[in-house]
Design a protein around this nucleic acid. Structure first.
Length: 255
DNA sequence: TTTCATGTTCAGCA
DNA sequence: GTGCTGAACATGAA
């Protein structure tokens, strides 16, 4: 599920559930710890309080009292769920705080966790680009260069952080740009359009709590499926592998 | 049974 | 260094 808007929404729900409460117990199993982790959640979380969060692209950092941060990456199938009583299936991380519990469910276990000292050094050590909702137009345009497909560029987290396969398709659809178009073949107006729709698409999803069915008409993500049709011209979506991922596009509207 | 999936990383190669 | 491909990770869903 998680690209930038999903992770932001997840963060809010986690903080809403356990933020400000004393963590009594925490447990992690089945997810790899990041290299930067200074210890396990079992030993480092009890007695702490989640006091806030930061997010960089798809990476979430929960701020803990005392100065450490809990890093969570949701991978491809991760999501949080507040619960009482029985632990939900596929729980890989759980936090119990003052009688309220949150599980991070991740069936495919492609996510990751860690207790780290600094989100800033974590982000820089992994050569991550700026967050897609924080980057300026000027910086985005200066980073958007090269010969590769524009879709591949949008997926490159060292260029900007937070855009994944679905939102990349939406951005290019809204700009009428085929995913295979090379970055160096885009004119300045097209590049600026990509920047503007990157923000618009991500914020549109945030506005509806990432419920795609509530997105405005005309957005691809309302119905990005094999048998669905372009909201502009009615053509069935085409698909192709670009940047290693399946890309949806309208062969009539996008050039 | 086979294929595909909203992610990341790394090896190999041109 | 750039950029692409394929594989790996692990598992549910179609």
């Amino acid at each position: 599920m998680p690209e930038l808007p999903e992770v932001e929404t997840f963060a809010r729900s986690i903080v809403n559930a356990v933020g400000g409460r004393n963590v009594e117990n925490a447990a992690s199993s089945g997810l790899p710890y990041c290299r930067e982790s200074v210890g396990t959640v079992e030993e480092l979380l009890p007695g702490k309080v989640v006091t806030g969060y930061r997010r960089h692209g798809k990476a979430l950092f929960l701020e803990l009292s005392g100065g450490l941060w809990l890093y969570i990456h949701f991978g491809m199938s991760g999501r949080p769920l507040a619960f009482h009583g029985d632990e939900p299936p596929y729980t890989r991380l759980r936090i119990d705080a003052d009688g309220t519990s949150v599980a991070i469910q991740d069936p495919r276990r492609l996510g990751g966790v860690g207790v780290i000292r600094s989100p800033d050094s974590f982000v820089s050590s992994r050569r991550r680009g700026p967050d897609a909702l924080a980057v300026s137009e000027e910086e985005f345009l200066s980073r958007l260069k090269g010969r590769r497909a524009v879709k591949a560029a949008l997926l490159d987290q060292s260029l900007v952080c937070g855009v994944g396969n679905l939102y990349a398709d939406e951005v290019l659809f809204q700009n009428r740009i085929l995913p295979v178009r090379r970055v160096d073949e885009l004119d300045d107006d097209e590049k600026r359009g990509v920047f503007h729709w990157m923000g618009k698409a991500l914020n549109a999803s945030l506005d509806v709590g990432t419920d795609f069915s509530l997105l405005p008409e005309g957005m691809m993500l309302r119905d990005r499926a094999k048998d669905a049709r372009c909201p502009n011209c009615g053509e069935t979506w085409s698909t192709a592998t670009v940047g290693g991922r399946t890309s949806y596009f309208c062969a009539v509207c996008q050039h």
